[in-house]
Design a protein around this nucleic acid. Structure first.
Lengths: 238, 238
DNA sequence: TAAGATAAGGCACTGAGTGACATGACGCCA
DNA sequence: TGGCGTCATGTCACTCAGTGCCTTATCTTA
């Protein structure tokens, strides 16, 4: 089992190293396998394609994202939930800045890798749309569908923008903070529009707050804010 | 010259037909070429990849789009300009609904085609971002960059949403009208945010209107509306 | 009609990705 | 200790996309 992990890691770093050195297209799977000390066939046991060996494991990350979405509180604003989900993706990159920067260097240069990455981000976007539609499964008004598409695209765009900026700066600075800032910008513009009609309905909804006698008021307020996704300087609920 | 066009068309319809019939992956380039009555090598003179032969000519369309963007009036709202540019893409599909529906059927089933299409749409999105950044090249405030990314993503998402809906309905109904409606929705939400800071600056700008004595007032008003991208029921300028 | 350009054919080659089968390491149980 | 199943790996052979190079046909223009 540990041998397997090692082979995978060896193959990844060999693929990235050789591609940075000689170019992605000029690097063959044979060379990568040889450099990693395994057989060519083993390469394809670990990675579906050559691109797979270079880019981060979006399959696994998408799994974490969908899991997160499925277990997200139905009380929280959908827009904020998908924003948090985008944070999971960002974390994957932030976990290993050095490799992330190397990968970025390659995706900048190799069209095939760029397209592969774009396809991956679009899968996240589809997951976001699916989640938002699910949150309003009963109400299938087409206006909602459009807004969910646009909101998901906006969150993904903000995420990508922040990520690219961070990678261009060689992985320095606090990405998460920058994402939070960008998301708050997006939320400011899209929040009222996206949960506009839902907010109308929700305004009349009874909300049950379970807490203890001892809990300080500010903490209860904080909880409600986190769950409903609003804050006192939010124009929608001011 | 006409022979070339014919070969290209033959190859496309053969590729689409055979793929619909037997599946994209199970259809080889040899078979497509044979069905079109040309040599295998000729196929690759017309199309870079097998996917290329199935999907619409996004290269050409992207050319039209960038040309349109380059020649767009610098007075018009950037958001509306890219919305019109999205209309150009939609027109490509609307031009031949029957083929568009067939292609949609294939992209739904074949991951490789889906990813190809996604990569194509992302190129449009990059063009939109480039255009918007160009419009504000002097002002490089990062807030703008983010907003341009989000706005472009939103327009593309709206376009794709409308396009998919139309294709699912087998190409019936007025796509352009639906796109206009969706874009107006998006503009409602994003307009003030996207050209927010520019609007502040533009509010003080002197505007020179060149017209003739005879031109009726309503026509001048129409021109100004078209050029500045606002209307009387637009909350931003109401 | 000759010359020159341009599209198409023929052919051989590289390299990604797959399927079938063999081997070798490791743990489990008798 | 020996037999057994499992799982990662290795070996070999194959298909097919995509490319380079050279040849052949066709069409244009002087």
């Amino acid at each position: 089992m540990s041998a397997r992990r090692d082979a995978r890691r060896e193959l990844m770093s060999a693929a990235i190293g050789l591609s940075l050195d000689a170019g992605f297209d000029a690097t063959t799977v044979d060379e990568i396998a040889k450099a990693a000390g395994v057989a060519r066939r083993t390469f394809f046991r670990h990675f579906r394609t050559k691109e797979d060996a270079i880019l981060p494991d979006h399959d696994a990350c998408l799994g974490r994202v969908t899991e997160f979405l499925e277990s997200a509180s139905p009380l929280r604003s959908p827009l904020l939930v998908i924003a948090d989900a985008a944070g999971i993706v960002l974390d994957m990159y932030a976990e290993d800045p050095e490799t992330a920067v190397k990968r970025y260097e390659l995706t900048r240069r190799v069209p095939a890798l760029r397209e592969w990455e774009i396809a991956a981000t679009s899968r996240y976007q589809r997951a976001f749309v699916g989640y938002m539609n699910g949150r309003r499964a009963k109400d299938e008004r087409p206006e909602f569908r459009l807004r969910h598409e646009v909101a998901s695209a906006a969150v993904v765009a903000a995420h990508n923008h922040v990520l690219r900026g961070w990678l261009r700066s060689a992985g320095r600075g606090d990405v998460r903070a920058r994402l939070a800032a960008a998301i708050s910008e997006v939320t400011k513009a899209l929040g009222p529009w996206v949960d506009g009609l839902e907010a109308e309905a929700a305004a009349d909804e009874v909300m049950v707050v379970l807490t203890t006698r001892r809990t300080p008021l500010w903490k209860i307020a904080e909880e409600i804010e986190a769950v409903t996704g609003r804050s006192d300087d939010d124009p929608a609920t001011r």
